[in-house]
Simulated assay, not measured.
Amino acid sequence: MRVINPIVIGEAQLVSSNVPETDYPAWAAATAYTKGQRVILAHVVYEALVDVPAGVKPGEEVVTAEAPAKWLEVGATNRWRMFDDKLESLTTNPGTISVTVKPGAVVNSVAMFNVSGKSVTVKMVDALEGEVYSETVTLVDAGVTNWYDYFFEPVGVKTDLVLLKLPAYGSANLVITVDAGAGQAAVGHVVVGSRQQIGTALYGTSVGINDYSRKSTDDFGNTVVVQRSYSNRAEFDVSVDTSAVTRIRRLLAELRATPVVWIGEETYEATILFGYYRDFSIVFSGPSVSDCSITVEAII
C-alpha cells in the first residue's frame, strides 16, 4: 500500500493549459454589478447576491449583520477545477485537455480522478535531457471473460488511475493530456506528488460507498428518493514491517488532516482513493511483521 502526498499546483506550477479561462468576465473595480452577474477573480468565480456598487471586491468585503454578503463564491474556473481538491467539479474541454505542470519539487507519481475520455498520456520533459518518460493509458475497460460478454456487454471505462513509475526529477515539466477524440474531455482532479510506502495491502481489504441520497416513506407507504452524491470508502488490511511501525505511525499522524491519494493496489481501481483516513490501528503481531488497518473515506 502506498500514499501520494500532493504538491500544491498554483499559478507558479501551471505552465500552460489549452482550456480557456473565459467562463465569465474578469472583475473590474470600476464596474457596478447587478444581482446574478458572475465574475472571475484570481481563478475563482463569484456571483452577485444583490446589486453590487463599484469597488466592492469579491472575497474581501466585510460581512456583518447590518451589511450581509454581496458576493457568493461559486467555485474555481473551468481551467482550475482539476486542481481544486474536489472530484465532482470537472474541468471540461472539447476533444482534449492538455496541461503542462512544473512541480518545482521531486515528484515520481501522478494520479487522476473522475476522468472522461479515451486515453491519458503523461510525459516528463527535462530542460537538459529532453523527454525522460512517456506513458499512455487507455481508459477503455472491457472487462470481458467470454465471447458473449465481448459482443453484448456494454464497454466500461476507467475513471481513476495512477502512474507510479515516473523517474524522480525535481526540475522536469509534466505534460498531461486527456484525449476524448471527438467527444468532451473531462477531469475531476489531478494529483502530482511523491509516493511513500506503507506496507502490503492484503486480501480481506473491503471497499464500498457512502451514499448521501435520502429516502423517506410516508404513512401510506409512498417512498420518495432524493438522489445525491456518494463518496468511496475502503477499509485496508495492511501488512507492515515491525521495524517500520514507528515511521508509519508518524507518517499517518502527519497526514491526519491532509487529503492524499491512497493506493491499495494500482491495478484495482476500487482501491485508489483521494481523501482522508478516518482512523488507523497497528498491532505488533510479531518481531518481523505487524498488522495495520486503515479506514479511508474519499472526498467528493
Results as ranks from 00 to 15, higher is better:
Met1Ser: 15
Arg2His: 10
Ile4Arg: 07
Ile7Asn: 03
Val8Tyr: 00
Val8Ile: 00
Ser16Ile: 07
Ser16His: 09
Asp23Tyr: 03
Pro25Ile: 10
Pro25Val: 07
Ala26Phe: 00
Ala26Tyr: 02
Ala28His: 15
Arg38Phe: 07
Val39Ile: 05
Ile40Tyr: 06
Leu41Lys: 15
Val44Trp: 14
Val44Met: 15
Val45Asn: 02
Tyr46Thr: 12
Tyr46Leu: 12
Val50Lys: 12
Ala69Tyr: 15
Ala76Asp: 14
Asn78His: 11
Asn78Ala: 11
Phe83His: 01
Asp84Glu: 04
Leu87Met: 15
Ser89Tyr: 07
Asn93Tyr: 01
Thr96Pro: 09
Ser98Gly: 00
Thr100Glu: 09
Pro103Phe: 00
Phe113Gly: 10
Phe113Asn: 14
Gly117Glu: 10
Ser119Leu: 07
Val120His: 08
Lys123Ala: 10
Val125His: 04
Asp126Pro: 01
Leu128His: 15
Leu128Asn: 15
Ser134Met: 05
Thr136Ile: 02
Thr145Trp: 13
Phe152Glu: 12
Glu153Asn: 13
Val155Phe: 07
Val157Gln: 13
Lys158Pro: 03
Thr159Leu: 00
Asp160Leu: 13
Leu161Met: 09
Leu164Gly: 13
Leu164Tyr: 09
Lys165Glu: 12
Gly170Met: 01
Ala172Thr: 09
Ala172Gly: 10
Leu174Met: 05
Ala180Tyr: 01
Val187Ile: 13
Val192Glu: 04
Gln197Lys: 10
Ile198Val: 11
Leu202Asn: 15
Gly204Asn: 03
Ser206Gln: 14
Ile209Ser: 01
Asp211Lys: 06
Tyr212Cys: 06
Ser213Phe: 06
Ser213Gln: 08
Arg214Ala: 00
Arg214Glu: 08
Phe220Trp: 08
Phe220Cys: 05
Asn222Glu: 04
Gln227Ile: 06
Arg228Gly: 10
Ser229Phe: 13
Tyr230Gln: 09
Ser231Gln: 08
Asn232Gly: 14
Val238Arg: 13
Asp241His: 07
Thr242Arg: 09
Thr246Pro: 10
Arg249Leu: 04
Ala253Cys: 07
Glu254Trp: 06
Arg256His: 01
Arg256Gly: 02
Thr258Ile: 06
Val260Ile: 02
Val260His: 04
Glu265Ser: 02
Thr271Gly: 00
Gly275Asn: 05
Arg278Cys: 06
Phe280Cys: 01
Phe280Gln: 02
Phe284Asp: 00
Ser285Tyr: 08
Asp291Gln: 11
Ser293Asn: 07
Ile294His: 11
Glu297Met: 08
Glu297Gly: 06
Ala298Ile: 07
Ile299Phe: 04
